[in-house]
Design a protein around this nucleic acid. Structure first.
Length: 371
DNA sequence: AAGTCGGGGCC
DNA sequence: GGCCCAGACTT
């Protein structure tokens, strides 16, 4: 028996016998829900995406409901999940399907692939799970399982590697039940052929696994590029005036695009950021045309957030404003209640949770002007 | 082909 | 601290 046939048969038998992961999108027939789950699960662990999937299905049971929802509301539901462009594309695609396609989901691999936010993996997943079409998924699990089983050290993040593993995946695919097969290989990668401490002793395909034979399990798959982490330093200003807080939307092509934040200054180095003090605050207020009728309150201690590609440091400074104040056109005053309806990055929610707002005296009274 | 985009969990 | 996760998009 050839190696890919052995792989397919053992894998299918394993999945018929063992089904450790009970997840709500498994066996789902509604293409809208299949698409929704796949977008949520991109670069996201199933356990992490679970509550977001439940949330979205509950709030938007149909693609029409999602299409009609205000984008801000959708972002708020997505808050904390990361990769926020997924959310923007999700909403845009919902509108495209609901309006342009009159609610009818595209039903071929090529047309599914044209949807915003849908790449080769997601198109194959929707085609197979939603329409039973013979397209093999290639996600992180598949790269790992195939590279180990076939003993292939071609880098999975190279153009050559992507092409190679896609072909290999297609050869192994069970074309008579592509959905079941795709589900099987991903489940297998997640529960047996794991990145760390794979369960090789109980592996159903260890009899022909090259990595197992040659003790290369921990060397595969190979990734060419190393992850670089950039450090960034922010000083956030929480401006309070008349019982409201100033917020602005992040519009740049940068992290947290389309989420809200507090007016801030980014520093080029840790040294400058650490050196910033109350005189830095005064300077910033002047630059931002904020009148000198304020009381500067104590800054919170610095907090940081470790992301996969950035290490972000932030400090929050609370400033209570008095008198008449006019904000930049891109900034808005929001009550705490309104604030809670807006999507914020985790770092800023951490500031709010840490009690930054409690630094203010929530009274609409005149405070002595600082001189 | 390389860079960028989050947040969480594991060792 | 480093790697990975049901990847896709931009440059």
């Amino acid at each position: 028996m050839d190696k890919s046939k052995y792989f397919r048969q053992k894998l299918l038998h394993w999945h018929h016998t063992i089904n450790e992961r009970e997840l709500p999108w498994k066996g789902e027939k509604d293409v809208y829900r299949i698409w929704l789950s796949e977008i949520i699960l991109q670069q996201t662990r199933a356990e992490q995406g679970l509550k977001y999937y439940e949330r979205f299905v509950n709030q938007y049971p149909t693609v029409q409901k999602l299409a009609k929802a205000p984008i801000e509301e959708v972002y708020k539901l997505w808050e904390g999940l990361g990769y926020y462009n997924r959310c923007r594309n999700l909403h845009a695609t919902a509108q495209f399907i609901a309006v342009e396609l009159k609610g009818k989901f595209p039903s071929t691999y090529e047309t599914i692939l044209e949807l915003k936010g849908v790449g080769p993996y997601t198109a194959a997943a929707i085609a197979s799970f939603g329409f039973g079409l013979p397209h093999a998924v290639v996600d992180g699990n598949v790269f790992r399982v195939l590279s180990r089983y076939f003993g292939i050290d071609t880098a999975i993040d190279s153009t050559e590697g992507k092409k190679l593993f896609q072909q290999l995946a297609a050869e192994c695919l069970d074309t008579t039940s592509p959905a079941f097969y795709n589900q099987a290989i991903m489940d297998f990668g997640a529960t047996v052929c794991k990145p760390d401490l794979p369960d090789c002793l109980n592996c159903p395909i260890k009899g022909k696994c090259t990595a197992f034979e040659q003790q290369l399990v921990n060397e595969l798959p190979v990734k060419a590029k190393k992850n670089k982490i950039r450090s960034r330093w922010f000083r956030f200003y929480l401006l309070m005036h008349d019982g409201k807080i100033a917020v602005q939307k992040r519009t740049a092509k940068d992290i947290w695009s389309n989420l809200y934040e507090f007016p801030n200054e980014e520093y080029a180095s840790e040294k400058e950021w650490k050196a910033a003090d109350s005189s830095s605050t005064e300077l910033w207020l002047k630059k931002n045309n904020i009148k000198r009728t304020y009381q500067q309150l104590s800054a919170t201690k610095a907090i940081k957030q470790q992301l996969s590609h950035q290490l972000i440091h932030g400090v929050a400074v609370a400033v209570q404003l008095n008198g008449k104040q006019v904000l930049h056109s891109n900034r808005e005053w929001k009550t705490v209640k309104e604030l809670k309806q807006l999507p914020f990055p985790k770092l800023l929610n951490d500031f709010l949770k840490a009690g930054v707002l409690e630094l203010f005296t929530w009274k609409h009274t005149t405070v002595n002007q600082k001189t």
